[in-house]
C-alpha cells in the first residue's frame, strides 16, 4: 500500500463560475443601458452613476472594517447594487440623495441582515423605495434638458397617445437606465447567453403582465365585454405598457437577483406570475403610473413562503405509505 488514497470531502466537481465573475458579467450587461443613459441625459447622469457606485463600494468596505470583518467588496456585489440603484434614479437628482440611497442599500438592507446572500430584499430596490417615499418631489421629477413633461407611462394612464418606437429605442424621459428597451434586452441576452440568468422568471413575469393588461387594461377583455371600449386589444397600448417604465429593467435585472428569488423551478414560475399580476395591479389600479419596484419588493417578501410550499421532498421523506 504505497499509494495513499486521499478522499476529500465533497463537492468533488467544482464550477469555475465565482460570485465575482457573475457580478462582473452583470456589470457588463448593464453597460449598454448605462452608456445610453449617459448619452441621453448628459454628464450629470455619469456623475450620479460614479458617485452611487463609489459610495456603495466604500460603504461596504468601511462597514466591514468597523465590524472588524474581512472586507467583502472584492465579490463585486456592492458595485452591482450601486449600479442598479444609480440606473433607477432620475437623471437630475441631487447628489446627496443618491449617496443616502447607496448607504441605505448597503448598510440597512444588505449588511445588517448578514451581507451577500442573506438579504431578504433586493438592496437597490429597497433603497429606491426608501428614496421614493422620503424624497417624492425629487424622485418623481423626470424633467431634464432633453425631455420635459410626463413620462410615457403617465401619458398612457391619462389615455393620451405615445410613440412606441421612441419608447423601444429609449428617447423618452425616465430614470437613467430604464428608458431604452433595446439596450436592456441587449444586456439581458448577454446574461442569458452566459447562463447567468434564464428566462423562467422574466418570461413568466412579462407574459403574466401582458395577460393581465389584456384582460383588465384599456381595450382589454373586461372593458370590451362591458361595453366601455369598442375595440378589442389595442396592440400599440400593450406594446407601450410592456416597454414603458422599469418593466424590462426589473424583469431581467432585478427580479432575477439570486438572493431574493425562489430557488425551486416551480417557485420561480409562481414568483414570475405573482410579479406580473402585482405590477399590473399597481399600474392599472394603483395611485401612481409605475409599479415595478413595489411589485418586486413585495415579491421578495413572499419568496420564503413560495419556497416553503414548493420545496421538493428528499427521497424517502414523507409521501404516501403503501
Amino acid at each position: 500500500m504505497k499509494e495513499k488514497l486521499e478522499v476529500s470531502s465533497n463537492p468533488h466537481v467544482r464550477s469555475k463560475v465565482t460570485t465575482s465573475s457573475i457580478m462582473f458579467a452583470v456589470v457588463i450587461a448593464l453597460l449598454p443601458a448605462s452608456i445610453f443613459g449617459i448619452v441621453q441625459f448628459g454628464w450629470y447622469a455619469a456623475l450620479l452613476i460614479v458617485v452611487t457606485v463609489g459610495t456603495a463600494v466604500l460603504t461596504e468596505h468601511l462597514f466591514c472594517k468597523i465590524c472588524k470583518k474581512p472586507s467583502t467588496i472584492k465579490d463585486g456585489s456592492a458595485m452591482v447594487t450601486g449600479l442598479i440603484l444609480a440606473l433607477n434614479l432620475p437623471p437630475h437628482l441631487p447628489v446627496y440623495i443618491a449617496i443616502l440611497g447607496a448607504v441605505f442599500a448597503i448598510v440597512v438592507v444588505k449588511l445588517l441582515f448578514g451581507g451577500l446572500g442573506q438579504n431578504f430584499m433586493n438592496p437597490a430596490l429597497g433603497a429606491r423605495c426608501f428614496l421614493v417615499i422620503s424624497f417624492a418631489k425629487y424622485m418623481t421629477n423626470f424633467e431634464c434638458d432633453a425631455f420635459t413633461g410626463p413620462t410615457p407611462l403617465a401619458l398612457l394612464r391619462e389615455g393620451e397617445p405615445v410613440n412606441v418606437f421612441n419608447m423601444v429605442i429609449g428617447r423618452t424621459g425616465g430614470t437613467i437606465g430604464e428608458t431604452s428597451v433595446i439596450a436592456l434586452v441587449l444586456g439581458a441576452c448577454f446574461l442569458i447567453f452566459l447562463g447567468v440568468i434564464d428566462l423562467k422568471i422574466p418570461g413568466t413575469y412579462l407574459l403574466s403582465f401582458v395577460i393581465f393588461v389584456a384582460i383588465f387594461g384599456r381595450s382589454g377583455l373586461i372593458p370590451y365585454l362591458t361595453g366601455e371600449s369598442s375595440t378589442f386589444l389595442d396592440f400599440q397600448y400593450l406594446a407601450a405598457q410592456l416597454s414603458g417604465g422599469g418593466l424590462m429593467f426589473g424583469a431581467f435585472f432585478m427580479a432575477t437577483d439570486y438572493t431574493t428569488r425562489p430557488i425551486t423551478k416551480k417557485g420561480q414560475y409562481i414568483y414570475g406570475i405573482f410579479l406580473g399580476v402585482m405590477t399590473g395591479i399597481f399600474r392599472l389600479f394603483g395611485p401612481g403610473a409605475e409599479g415595478v419596484s413595489y411589485a418586486i419588493i413585495i415579491g421578495n417578501l413572499i419568496v420564503p413562503l413560495i419556497e416553503k410550499a414548493t420545496m421538493p421532498k428528499a427521497f424517502g421523506k414523507g409521501g404516501e405509505r403503501a
Partner: peptide, 15 residues
Amino acid sequence: AGEFSSYSPIGILIM
C-alpha cells in the same frame, strides 16, 4: 450651494 439649498428632510423617518 445648489446641493444644500435644495435640502429636504428624510420624510420616511416620520412615517
